[in-house]
Design a binder for these strands. Structure first.
Length: 884
RNA sequence: GGGCGGUUAGCUCAGCGGUAGAGCAUCGGUCUUACAAACCGGGGGUCACUGGUUCGAUUCCAGUACCGCCCACCA
């Protein structure tokens, strides 16, 4: 009959449409409407698409497509992040295959090689984003190490330096002995691990006894330069100032008083190791203590640790220190203890707090305005609760370690002259000029990756240059991102945006759901519980994947997502089935256009109930979907569409209008009906397009349409005049009657093939309603004849039911199973009695009648009366049937 | 230690002040000319627990339990 396949075939459609869209320039900003701009969170250049990305970018594409259809001038700028440590690790791993380290080939070669890797494999994730249909402006794609971007990073550094916001500091930082670099506080992962707490005896010089200190890291005792007690701790007041001989080392160290020692922990005395613990470092500064470095950057003991330990790994050293102390009787006790452990976010290695020289950004000044814009609501978080998360952190913000001992990244633009003077410049040339002939060397370190990505919204638009894009598209509209980078990234963009642009970089921050496995665990490589979105696309198509994710993206609630088993994933399959439903409903419509003339997508006004009803429902759906999108309730938008399309449009409207729409003749009436069904379908497709771009475009183009793509068609608007509550009520009755008949059929085991005779008793208007839909009732409930009267004839051999004042009776041609029918009716009575009872008890309660809103009381009364009548009727039926 | 979420049908989740909803699964019936990836019908829930507010609570408030996330320099 038709050349349209029976099932939707996503892959050919996807491959065909994407290049057409791109070539047509639909992804580029157009028009004069208000602006809607997104600069996507740049994925790591080494990355490949995982399910979280799929969700994140599906959301952004849905938003962009929706606003584009609404007539906004839309722009979505894609790009990637050079991801310092991550990328360097990838290339180092490659080198290792050839038994080489980065040091073997040297910095220059290594960076060159990394660039090579980036050029060769780096774009992968962006290609994958095309696959899920992202309508991003690829010509504007940016990379955080592009020449222009580097300019932005240098500008930021220099400008912050000049503003006194950047300083060089000598302090204890988080050091990863595997990555061989400093990392910031927020790149450290804290977790509790089983371990031991060692209680050590430190003897006083004068032989007057010992003080006991507790530690989880005995090897650091080699670097102790004091023992601290709380000044108000009476046990020690008399001892403060005494000298202790540090065991194994023999160094004389003082017993000092400092608030930081808590009297209620352990013995109340704490050993102080200024070079290897941040607290101790600070205490050391307060008391002018020496800083003895006993652990080096490879986490091995230094010569300072003493010849017995030098060169040992920190954990070997721990064993040996404990052994040695033990043999001298200096271990008071060792107990099992849960040790808070800091590990490197990137590689999981235990962090070593190390004393070193790093660059820092002073945060307080930058944080102030960044907090203001959130408090004032100029930057709004969705869900709102994340504003508090953000503000709490900003309140307690600490300076940011921005230098990294890596080779891949933006080299710190600081040069040192022979006489130790710092020269900060945008590039080598400028630095040399400033040096005025002095010999200079550039700092070896690079900047934290987040230093550059923190400039993203303005930098991708051209800053620090005053480009037309920057002028036109800054600030952006919404940032869609993950919870865990609110501090790492979001806060820094707000700070830098305000600092350099004097305007917040975006007005909305939408924190989307985290995708977890079915057990509620984060997806990770090590657990092997990840789901590859590309496999899902392979199985079910992009639209299904997008719809599945979007229909679950509720209010930042996490999503539990199943993995693929036996080539099936139930959640995406559900969406695939929906896509197929859309396909087939459209197929029905299209089949009926083949021999019809002059059909266009247009709402031809109609007095028909079904028409009025579907138009009203469409209208409601438009409002629902639009307002849901405005508030980032993607799931509600998706689910509203699902039910409108499947339940209302497919199950009822198509079925009810089938007669006319598929009639053989090309009458004016049939034409109008076809126009209407095309209109409803067309509108539905538009509403669905942001969620399922491919299938909607493919169908839309096959329908009568104006314009060249659904992508740039107009988003439907809510029209109050289309609201029709009477039609909803009437439709409810019609649906009710048909369902009741179907129910009787099924419960009474009436064969599908047999045509029924239907008796109806009801009021005049109800009779008119049923008369008007006689054809449809006959078809949908498989009824042969409808006999309508004021009352049902006494039918001894009929199944009966009643709803909303409409009594129906279905004769069973003597084949009635009396017991079955009695059971069915008894059950029905019980159900209604339950409801009537609860309504009655409510109505009997004077305070309900007094205090509840009048409408609720009236409604309850009405419903109660209705139920009583229905129960009576059913009881008498039961009597006729000989039931008790 | 602080903060924030979650707990609703066998599973995955919506709903959030007027007697509980979806998809999948399950049971029964259908090749009814768009769709078996479908259609029709059924069964299945004291909405974690305990109090409070209210005429009325799954829905609001407080507490408890368990699960999870984020933050945190207690040796």
């Amino acid at each position: 009959m038709t050349d349209i396949p029976k099932a939707y075939e996503p892959h050919s459609v996807e491959e065909r449409l994407y290049p057409i869209w791109e070539a047509a320039g639909y992804f580029k900003p157009k028009g004069e409407g208000p602006k809607y701009v997104i600069t996507i969170p740049p994925p790591n250049v080494t990355g490949s698409l995982h399910i979280g990305h799929a969700l994140c970018y599906s959301i952004q594409d849905a938003l962009i497509r929706w606003r584009r259809m609404q007539g906004y001038e839309t722009l979505c700028v894609p790009g990637t992040d050079h991801a310092g440590i991550a990328t360097q690790n990838v290339v180092e791993k490659e080198l290792r295959k050839d038994k080489l380290s980065r040091h073997d080939i040297g910095r220059e070669k290594f960076v060159e090689r990394t660039w090579q890797w980036v050029h060769e494999y780096g774009g992968l994730i962006l290609r994958q984003l095309r696959r899920i249909g992202c309508s991003f402006d690829w010509d504007r794609t940016r990379f955080t190490m592009d020449e222009a971007y580097v300019e932005a990073v240098m500008e930021c550094f220099v400008s912050w330096w000049e503003a006194g916001l950047i300083y060089r500091g000598h302090r204890v930082i988080n050091w990863c002995p595997r990555c061989l670099t400093a990392i910031s506080d927020i790149e450290v992962v804290h977790e509790d691990r089983p371990g031991k707490l060692y209680h050590l005896r430190y003897p006083f010089e004068d032989g007057s006894g010992v003080v006991i200190v507790a530690t989880t890291r005995p090897e650091t005792m080699l670097g102790d330069t004091a023992v601290a007690v709380n000044p108000s701790d009476e046990r020690y007041t008399a001892l403060i100032g005494k000298t202790i001989i540090l065991p194994l080392v023999g160094r004389s160290i003082p017993l000092i008083a400092d608030d930081y020692a808590k009297a209620d922990f352990g013995s109340g005395a704490v050993k102080v190791t200024p070079a290897h613990d941040l607290n101790d470092f600070e205490a050391g500064l307060r008391h002018n203590l020496p800083q003895v470095i006993v652990i080096d950057e490879h986490a091995k003991m230094t010569p300072e640790a003493g010849s017995a330990y030098a060169g040992l790994d920190r954990f070997e050293a721990r064993k040996k220190v404990v052994q040695d102390l033990e043999s001298q009787g200096l271990i008071a006790k060792i107990e099992d203890y849960t040790v808070p452990t800091a590990t490197c976010e990137r590689c999981g290695t235990i962090i070593e707090p190390l004393l070193s020289e790093q660059w820092f950004v002073r945060m307080k000044e930058l944080a102030g305005p960044a907090m203001e814009v959130v408090k004032e609501g100029r930057v709004k978080f969705f869900p709102e609760r994340y504003a508090k998360t953000y503000l709490d952190w900003m309140e307690n913000i600490r300076d940011w370690t921005i230098s990294r001992q890596l080779w891949w990244g933006h080299r710190i633009p600081v040069w040192t002259t022979e006489d130790g003077e710092y020269i900060v410049a945008r590039n080598q040339e400028e630095a040399e000029k400033k040096a005025a002939g002095k010999k200079i060397t550039q700092d070896e370190d690079v900047l934290d990756t987040w230093f550059s990505s923190g400039l993203w919204p303005q930098a991708v638009l051209g800053w620090p240059r005053q480009t037309p894009d920057l002028e036109r598209y800054y600030p952006t509209s919404v940032l869609t991102t993950a919870r865990e980078i609110i501090y790492l990234w979001v806060s820094r963009m707000i700070m830098s945006g305000l600092h350099f642009m004097n305007e917040e970089p975006f007005s909305h921050v939408y924190i989307y759901a985290t995708v977890l496995d079915v057990l509620g665990r984060r997806m990770s490589k090590s657990l092997g519980n990840g789901v590859n979105p590309l496999d899902l696309i392979e199985l079910y198509g992009s639209d299904a994947l997008r719809f599945s994710l979007l229909s679950r993206a509720a209010r930042g609630q996490d999503i539990k997502f199943a993995k693929i088993e036996n080539r099936r994933q139930p959640q995406v399959e559900e969406a695939r089935n929906f896509a197929n439903k859309i396909w087939n409903a459209s197929r029905f419509v299209m089949m009926n256009l083949v021999n019809a003339s002059n059909v266009e997508s247009r709402w031809v006004p109609s007095k028909e109930l079904a028409d009025r009803w579907i138009l009203s429902r469409l209208n409601e759906t438009v409002r629902e979907v639009t307002s849901a999108l405005e508030e980032y309730r993607m799931n509600e938008a998706a689910q509203g569409l699902y039910h409108f399309f499947w339940d209302d449009f497919c199950d009822w409207y198509i079925e009810l209008s089938k007669g006319l729409v598929s009639s053989a003749e090309d009458s004016e009436q049939a034409r109008a009906a076809r126009c209407r069904i095309v209109y409803i379908l067309d509108s539905s497709l538009r509403l669905l397009h942001p969620f399922m771009p491919y299938i909607t475009e493919d169908i839309w183009l096959r329908l009568p349409h104006e314009g060249e793509s659904i992508m740039i068609s107009k988003w439907p608007e809510y029209e109050p005049a289309r609201h029709d509550s009477e039609a909803s009520a009437q439709m409810g009755k019609l649906i009710g009657v048909i369902s009741k008949i179907r129910n009787i059929r099924s419960e009474m085991n009436i064969p599908t093939q047999s045509r029924l005779k239907l008796y109806v008793a009801c009021s005049e208007d109800n009779r008119e309603l049923l008369k008007a839909y006689e054809e449809q009732i006959k078809r949908l409930a498989r009824v042969e004849e409808i006999v309508a009267d004021e009352s049902l004839p006494p039918l001894e051999s009929a199944a009966r039911d009643i709803l909303e004042g409409i009594e129906i009776g279905v004769p069973l041609e003597g084949l009635i199973d009396l017991k079955k029918e009695r059971d069915r009716i008894t059950k029905e009575i019980a159900r209604k009695e339950d409801e009537a009872r609860s309504l009655a008890s409510r109505l009997d309660n004077p305070s309900f009648v007094e205090r509840a809103p009048q409408s609720v009381v009236d409604e309850s009364r009405l419903r109660h009366g209705e139920l009583i009548t229905e129960i009576e009727k059913l009881r008498s039926t039961l009597g006729i049937l000989g039931g008790s």
